[in-house]
């Protein structure tokens, strides 16, 4: 029963969406929009599951004392700091003891992790004392420092300059750098294709070289290269793309139908 009801739900929602596609009426559209909103809301709840998993795995790594496990402290402190920034904001001109509070809380988290990872009772006691000490100090700072405040009901935290700075100067540079690594990787991938001596790899490489050369005026017959490259992109490329699109489309359609009809059940686990 516990297993059958979900498949019944899949069937009902799936069939509804199929019918909805053919019914343009406002009422049908209205239900469709509601369902899409619901999916977004459920996704947010799922994020809590994800954060819990990340936290749990990081804590486990520290506890197991695996090589590199200590880096999980950085993940946990980064996670904490960003959450803290997202729910606090300065109330005046300066920051007061805000950064001290951030550091005390971070130290408290690290101490708690060390406490969890320690096996020696003496060390356990030491880390327990340290975490309580840091926590008390952090609470006192939070109570007596008026330069900043918690904002748990309104989104002032999103305008916290530290929240923005972390986004602009930590997240964005790493994102852009990770993305730019592709320039190196694409070169090494091209080299790999060059080394693979078979007909298919050669065709791939030749087409890639032709298209790469399209803006290069140094190549003899640059105009012909550009024309050939354009033709390649507009004609054989169009044909192959269409064939792939039809294949993928039918694959999706076939799998979706199996899901609606309850033939494909692998995604639901065993129960």
């Amino acid at each position: 029963m516990r297993r059958q009801i979900p498949f019944g739900l899949v069937f009902i929602f799936g069939i509804f969406m199929v019918f909805q596609f053919f019914v343009p009426h406002e009422k049908s559209e209205w239900v469709y929009e509601f369902l899409l909103d619901w999916i977004i809301v459920i996704g947010i709840f799922a994020l809590a599951l994800g954060i819990w998993s990340l936290f749990k795995v990081s804590v486990e790594k520290i506890k197991q004392g695996k090589e590199g496990g200590n880096y999980s402290y950085i993940t946990l402190v980064g996670l904490y700091m960003m959450v803290a920034f997202g729910f606090t904001q300065q109330t005046g001109e300066g920051w007061g003891l805000y950064f001290l509070w951030i550091m005390l809380c971070s130290a408290c988290i690290v101490s708690l992790m060390r406490l969890r990872a320690s096996t020696d009772s003496g060390k356990k006691r030491m880390w327990a004392l340290a975490s309580v000490g840091f926590l008390v100090a952090a609470v006192l700072v939070a109570i007596f420092d008026d330069a900043w405040a918690f904002f748990l009901y309104t989104p002032e935290g999103l305008e916290n300059s530290m929240f923005e700075i972390f986004f602009d100067h930590i997240m964005m540079p790493i994102l852009a750098t990770m993305f730019s690594l592709l320039a190196f990787y694409i070169a090494s991938a091209a080299y790999r294709a060059f080394r693979a001596r078979n007909v298919l790899a050669s065709l791939l490489l030749l087409a890639a070289l032709l298209v790469m050369s399209r803006f290069n005026p140094v190549i003899p017959g640059a105009e012909y290269v550009a024309n050939a490259s354009n033709w390649l992109m507009n004609v054989p490329n169009l044909a192959a793309q269409r064939a792939i699109v039809i294949g993928i489309g039918l694959g999706i359609v076939g799998t979706a139908l199996k899901i609606i009809l309850g033939i494909e059940r692998g995604y639901m686990g065993r129960g």
Binding site: L200, A208, N237, A239
Partner: peptide, 12 residues
């Protein structure tokens, strides 16, 4: 073959 030419073009 045509697929591979296309993939090469896309790569380039």
């Amino acid at each position: 073959w045509i697929l591979m030419i296309t993939f090469g073009a896309s790569f380039g």
